[in-house]
Every structure is written in structure tokens, then in C-alpha cells.
Design a protein around this nucleic acid. Structure first.
Lengths: 234, 234
DNA sequence: CTAATGATGTGACGTAAATCACTGTAGGGC
DNA sequence: GCCCTACAGTGATTTACGTCACATCATTAG
């Protein structure tokens, strides 16, 4: 199951954090990185766990989320292949503030806290890159707070659909089409609500002529209306 | 109105970001720092503004917050003297993700983005300190999201009161006393709701015998009940 | 083919939250 | 003293949200 060093180096090179490093530098890191596979749904770490190190996502998708006692989730971020996870606690020594789980089949590289800190001290520009990545996370969290504080579920769903349409939608004669890549349950967790409200609001949108839902395919027939919906969300 | 360089150096030394720097280094920064006073309520920067640089709070308190179209606010952080503000956009070049306003009379040192970046490159350990500060912010934001997603206003108010009791409360024969340092309106913004709900929930707590409100003084007579309230908040 | 499983759609309901509208109160300035 | 203004308290009402319950539909295992 052990992976070639060359492959690990290749993975590291494509990560924004390590872009621009020389071959020997990458090799140094690769020597100390462990690769591991995760099944869909498998936990990578949990909120409150002591932070052991940093992860680099080679393949697959990972979600970062919080859980409530009653079983609800709030997704903070979905990370795609080529990104790093949990850079943060490496630097302040605290616990993980949220949990991480594999969405699908994932391969992750693990770099221990100690090794990564040492590496940052040797190559100071890496710290600046970490800062940039962390900045993006912080912006994302602020945006989530703004949405949770000021908008309705209806609004957040509209935003989610619009984003999905922009990133994965295909133009067709009937509008912009895309298939829902997640269950209503997952979608609900991403926008901070429950599956019933996702289902209901999709029905509302459909009855108002903004879109059509056919199985797991969404056809956005009135993009302007959807955008107006979001703008109305203050 | 211009302040002495010695004073600016003293201010910088007490900031966690710059702790451990030598006198000449601090002097270099102080030469490039501008000091400015702000009135209570005065805006320091607004969400969406282009980031010009970083601020160091010499005296007073500053709140970082978002605003909704309807006039509601969500406070993200209250910064006290000795802390830095807005380290973030300095590194990723983006806009301010939130607004900042002076709570009371404040004096702030301003260091331009350019100067601060140059300084970080010369002194790499400063970057690591910035990372630590930013980590703390990120943790704080995650905690806010968790509260907004999973708890009630009643719960958040209980938490707020408990924290205030711990940090500023005085033991008396009747329990733990402290005076409310902010209006109900401000308190509401800090816990993500409206003033009416703060007022009402304080009444509920009082009628349930957890505490007494006398003017702007709060006497927590049943601390255990208050703590139980928070624990019940899942 | 059938049973079992899991996800979805929806009606009914209870409740927390927000809004509106107003009264009461404390403090400051004149 | 008085008037203002700002803030606090509170009832009434509306709305959004979440929960429960259950029917439907699709997929898969056997």
C-alpha cells in the first residue's frame, strides 16, 4: 500500500502552500509525509482532538464541520484535492476547533506538527503562504456568520444553487442544468438547516417558476429571479 | 497632537505581535507608524474597503462587526488595548471582510501594508506570531458559528452573563455582582439578536430566580442554575 | 419478484425569534 | 424646574424554523 516518493512529491508540488519549492525541498517534506486512504464518511479528526499535524488532500473531498448534541451539523468548508487541512492548530498548539470527515474515497498526506514547524522556520516564505491560506479560511467563516445572522434558509438555498450553477452548470435549451451532487440532508448541513426545509424550499422555487427539479437534476429556468432572490436577502 | 516616538515604541512593545523585538527594530517600526485618535462610535474602516494596512490599538476598545441591510449588527470581536486589528488582508491583498468602529475613545497606530510586509520578510518570526494571532481569531469565529447554529438566544445570553461574571464580577453577600458595561442594544449585537430579546430574557432569568437586575447592575444569585442553563444548550 | 433500506416530499404542529407599537424611566442641557 | 433624547420594558402579532409523522419512490439485496 506504500506509495512512491515521486508520487508524494508530485502531490506536494500541486498544493498552493508548497508551490515554488525546489525538488530537494519537496523531497525533504515527502520523506516525512505519510499517506493514508479514507473511506467515504470516515472521520479524519474530531473537534476537540489534540492536533497532531497538518494534512494535504491528494485525492477526494473532505468536509470540515461542527456537530450539535442533537445530531445537526454545520459545514464550515469543503476541501478539494490539492488543498491543505488544519494548518491552524499547528501554529497555536490548540485542539482542532472542528471535525473533518472524508466525503468520498480520499487519500491524505500527513505531516507532523514538528516537521512542518521546522520546515517553516527554514523556509520563511512558506509561513507567508500559510497566512494567505488561513486568510481565505477566515474570510469564508465571516461570510458564513453573515449568512447565518442575516439571511433566511430560502436565501441561503438560492445562493447555494446559484454557486452550483456557476461552477458546475451546463447551458441547455431550458436553462442551466446540473445534478445535485449531495443528498438534501448534506445540502441542509452545508447551509445550516434541516433536510425538510431544503425539500420544501426547492418546491417553492419550482412552484414560483424559478427552476425545475427532475430527480436529482435541477434546471434553472429563470436565473434572474434566482439572483433577485439573493439580492433581496439583504 | 503628534506623539513622541518613545511612546509609540512603548505601545508596540506591549503588543503580542511585536513582543521580543529589539529596541532598534521597534524604533524602525515606530518611525513608520502613524498615531490617530478616534471618537466613540467612529468608524475605523468598513466592510468592503480596500485594506491599507494594519492597526495597533494603543488605548480604548474597538469592535469588529458585520452589518445587515436592515440595520442589525453581528459583533465578531471586541479588541482591547494592546492588540492588533486587521492583520489579515495585509497578507492576501483582499478587502476588509468586516467593519471596525471605536467603542470608546481610542488611539490607534497605523502601519502601512507595504511597511509591515517588508518587516515580516526581515524578521520571519513575526510571521509566526501573526499566525498565532490569526489562529485565535479563527477559533473565535468557529465558536460564533457554533453558537449561532446550535443555541438559542436564551443560551447565548446566559453564556455572555457567565463570561462577564467571571471576568468582571465581584463576590458579594448576595452573589456575584457586575454592572452591564454596554446597552442592551450592544449586548444584543454581540450575541446576534435584537434588544427586545435581551430585555425579555433578562426578565425571564430574574423571574426564575437566577439573578436580579437593579438598574444596570446584575447580581447573579444562582450561579449553578446559570451554568446549567448553558449546559442544557446542547 | 419481493422485501428491505434509504432518501424524498409534504401536511400538521409547536416554538423561538423578530417586528411593531407603545409606555415608562433616567439623565442632560437649558 | 422643564423638555429632550436615549434607553429599557413589555404586550401583541407575525413569521421562519424545526420537529414529528407518514406516504411515496427508487435502489439494491436476496
Amino acid at each position: 500500500m506504500s506509495e512512491s516518493k515521486a508520487k508524494r512529491i508530485e502531490s506536494l508540488r500541486s498544493v498552493p502552500l508548497f508551490a515554488g519549492l525546489t525538488e530537494p525541498e519537496l523531497g525533504l517534506l515527502a520523506d516525512r509525509a505519510l499517506s493514508r486512504k479514507y473511506q467515504p464518511g470516515e472521520m479524519i479528526f474530531s473537534e476537540g482532538d489534540a492536533c497532531e499535524g497538518l494534512y494535504v488532500l491528494q485525492t477526494g473531498n473532505v468536509k470540515i464541520f461542527n456537530t450539535s448534541a442533537s445530531g445537526r451539523e454545520q459545514v464550515l468548508q469543503i476541501e478539494r484535492a490539492g488543498n491543505s487541512l488544519a494548518e491552524l492548530p499547528v501554529f497555536d498548539g490548540g485542539d482542532y476547533p472542528a471535525s473533518a470527515a472524508a466525503v468520498d474515497n480520499c487519500t491524505l498526506l500527513f505531516i507532523s506538527k514538528k516537521d512542518f514547524r521546522a520546515f517553516c522556520l527554514e523556509r520563511p516564505e512558506v509561513s507567508l503562504k500559510v497566512l494567505k491560506v488561513v486568510s481565505a479560511r477566515l474570510r469564508n467563516l465571516v461570510a458564513i456568520i453573515e449568512e447565518l445572522s442575516f439571511t433566511t434558509v430560502r436565501n441561503r438555498l438560492a445562493s447555494w444553487l446559484l454557486q452550483e450553477a456557476r461552477s458546475r452548470g451546463q447551458k441547455s435549451s431550458r436553462g442551466i442544468e446540473f445534478t445535485l451532487s449531495v443528498s438534501n440532508q448534506e445540502l441542509a448541513f452545508q447551509i445550516g438547516t434541516v433536510r425538510e426545509l431544503v425539500s420544501r424550499n426547492l418546491s417553492y422555487f419550482q412552484s414560483e417558476g424559478m427552476l425545475r427539479v427532475e430527480g436529482r437534476t435541477v434546471v434553472i429556468s429563470n436565473l434572474a429571479a434566482l439572483e433577485a432572490e439573493i439580492a433581496a436577502g439583504k
